[in-house]
């Protein structure tokens, strides 16, 4: 047998075409990482491009539902393999792009399950890849199983490995978000109570230093009081001494002491008589002696020396 020509058929041909298109689109920048867009964390409306009959459809919705709720899924049924697939998918992108803004999803999910390279052919078709690339709405592409990769995957904003994975990317998990919310509130609360504690500490310290000042002032007042008391006490001592002098002096002047020495005091009607002329003969007088009193009558008065008094 002589081989004159070898023609590539089947998977080999597809593989060659795939690589050629990949190189071409890559050169055009269709796969550029720089133009990848992010998707909202909590989308309200999701556009789903897949076949109603595909397992991917059920898988995607099941995971979506398990993770998140209250979301609206706009499903556009397309053939994901066969002759109609390319035009269906390309048209689906146009449909979503042309929806009025109040109907437009925030993210598109293009998905199908695994298959052979022929099965996945539509996702490597230039028209589909360009439709993904041109979509004004960010696209998540999940074609095949973990190991499969399509050109649509590369052109999409986000590449998911499986339909379930696409659901995991497109919505968060309720429990995670719940935990985040609780964490945020706890964080706010602890920051606030920290601040309150700090303020309380400031007030406590202020009170403490005020108390210290008051104690110091009180101490000063105490010292002052002590000094005043001491000063008054020493003054009192001096006064006591002075009083003692006066007392001695007064005691010296006490007439009873003079009388005790043998002198007598003459009175008439309580009045002390110094001048005998103030008396007349026969006047009654009282004489105070050391040991007692006398009542006498004046017999004679004489102002000059040699006074004579005659006792009755």
């Amino acid at each position: 047998m002589q081989v004159q020509e070898i023609e590539q058929v089947g998977e080999g041909t597809l593989q060659k075409a795939y690589l050629a298109l990949k190189a071409k689109l890559e050169a055009e920048g269709v796969f550029d990482v720089s133009r990848k867009r992010s998707i909202p964390r909590f989308p309200k409306r999701i556009g789903l491009i897949t076949s109603r009959e595909a397992a991917a459809y059920g898988d995607f919705l099941r995971i979506l539902q398990a993770r998140w709720g209250g979301v609206e899924v706009l499903h556009l049924h397309v053939h994901v393999q066969g002759q109609e697939a390319v035009s269906d998918i390309a048209e689906a992108f146009k449909t979503f792009a042309n929806l009025p803004s109040n109907e437009k999803p925030e993210v598109l999910v293009l998905t199908r399950g695994g298959g052979s390279l022929e099965d996945l052919h539509a996702f490597n078709d230039e028209a589909v890849v360009r439709a993904v690339f041109a979509s004004p709405i960010p696209v998540i592409c999940a074609v095949g199983h973990e190991r499969d990769e399509s050109l649509s995957d590369f052109a999409a904003d986000i590449r998911a490995s499986t339909p379930s994975h696409a659901a995991e990317i497109v919505v968060p998990r309720r429990e995670d978000v719940l935990f985040e919310i609780d964490t945020m509130v706890r964080h706010q609360e602890s920051r606030l109570s920290d601040k309150l504690r700090q303020r309380g500490e400031v007030v406590r310290r202020a009170l403490q230093s005020m108390q210290l000042v008051l104690t110091r002032q009180g101490h000063k007042v105490g010292i002052l009081l002590e000094r005043i008391t001491n000063a008054i006490e020493s003054q009192i001592g001096t006064l006591k001494q002075t009083c003692g002098h006066w007392d001695a002096l007064l005691r010296q002047l006490d007439p009873t002491r003079v009388v005790a020495r043998g002198y007598a005091i003459v009175r008439q009607g309580g009045r002390i008589i110094k001048d005998p002329n103030s008396l007349d003969k026969g006047d009654s007088i009282h004489i105070q002696c050391a040991e007692g009193n006398l009542t006498a009558e004046v017999l004679q008065t004489d102002t000059a020396e040699g006074i004579q008094q005659q006792l009755v």
């Binding site: 979506l64 209250g70 899924v73 499903h75 556009l76 397309v78």
Partner: peptide, 14 residues
Amino acid sequence: LTEVEARVREIRAM
């Protein structure tokens, strides 16, 4: 978060 239901609306290509 307690809203558990997701709604699916079928749309047709243009």
